[in-house]
C-alpha cells in the first residue's frame, strides 16, 4: 500500500470513527517508514477536520465526534511512542483547562468543547463539573494552563464564571491566564460584562477563539 493510501485511510478512520482501521493504518504508516508526524497531520487531523466541519454544519452529531476522537486516540497510541523516539513533538497550540463552574452538573457542552479543542491541537485538561472557584484556579496553575475555559448551562450558575475572574484579579493572577466562557445562556454581552477574554457560541468557534487568543491563527 502506498503512502497516499495509508494517509487517506487514517483520515477515513477518523471520519468513520473506526478504531480498528485507525490502529491498522497507524501500524502500516510506521512499517512503511512514513514520518509519524506526517501521519498525524496529513492523515488523522485531516479526517478530524472533516468531522469537525460536519459537526459545525449540523450534518454530524456528538456520537460521530466522539467516535472520531476515539479513532484518533487509538492511532495516537501507536504513533506517539514513535514520535517521541524520534525526539519530535506535535506542535501544541497551548494548554486549555476546561470545567463546568460551581453548582452546575451539566457536562455535554463542556465535553464537546473539550473534544474539539483536543482534536484541534490543544492540550486539554478537563476537570469535570461542579468545580469550586479556587479549585479551578489551583488546577489551572498546576496544569500551567494558557487558557481557562468555563462552562455554565444555567442562568443561576453564570455568576460563578464572573467569580473566577474576580478571584483571579484578587489573587493577582488575572494576567497569567486567558479566560473563555461558554454555555447555553452565555453570550458575548455577558463575556464582555464580566471581563472574559473570549466567548465561543459553538465548540468549533471556541477552538477558533482560543487559537486567536493565543495568536495561533492560520
Amino acid at each position: 500500500m502506498d503512502k497516499t493510501q495509508i494517509l487517506e485511510n487514517l483520515a477515513h478512520a477518523a471520519i468513520e470513527g473506526d478504531e480498528d482501521l485507525a490502529r491498522e493504518s497507524a501500524e502500516q504508516a510506521l512499517s512503511n517508514q512514513i514520518d509519524p508526524l506526517e501521519a498525524v497531520e496529513q492523515g488523522l487531523s485531516k479526517g478530524m477536520a472533516v468531522v469537525g466541519a460536519r459537526f459545525e454544519s449540523g450534518e454530524a452529531f456528538l456520537p460521530e465526534l466522539l467516535m472520531a476522537a476515539g479513532a484518533f486516540d487509538a492511532a495516537m497510541e501507536i504513533l506517539q511512542p514513535e514520535i517521541e523516539a524520534q525526539k519530535k513533538e506535535i506542535t501544541k497550540l497551548g494548554t486549555v483547562l476546561i470545567g463546568t463552574v460551581k453548582g452546575d452538573v451539566h457536562s455535554i457542552g463542556k465535553n464537546v468543547v473539550a473534544t474539539v479543542l483536543g482534536t484541534s491541537g490543544f492540550d486539554v485538561v478537563d476537570i469535570g463539573v461542579d468545580n469550586a472557584t479556587l479549585d479551578i484556579i489551583q488546577e489551572a496553575k498546576k496544569a500551567k494552563a494558557d487558557v481557562i475555559a468555563l462552562s455554565s448551562l444555567m442562568t443561576t450558575t453564570m455568576p460563578a464564571q464572573r467569580e473566577v475572574i474576580e478571584v483571579l484579579e484578587e489573587m493577582s493572577l488575572r494576567d497569567k491566564f486567558l479566560v473563555m466562557v461558554g454555555g447555553g445562556p452565555v453570550n458575548q454581552e455577558w463575556a464582555d460584562e464580566i471581563g472574559a477574554d473570549g466567548y465561543g457560541k459553538s465548540a468549533v468557534q471556541a477552538a477558533e477563539v482560543a487559537r486567536r487568543l493565543l495568536g495561533r491563527e492560520g
Partner: peptide, 18 residues
C-alpha cells in the same frame, strides 16, 4: 420563576443565597 438575585447579590448554586 426562579430568583436571580437576593438583596442585589447574584444567586450562586449551592450557596446560602440559593
Amino acid at each position: 420563576p426562579a430568583f436571580g438575585r437576593v438583596r442585589g447579590m447574584h444567586v450562586v448554586g449551592g450557596s446560602p443565597l440559593e
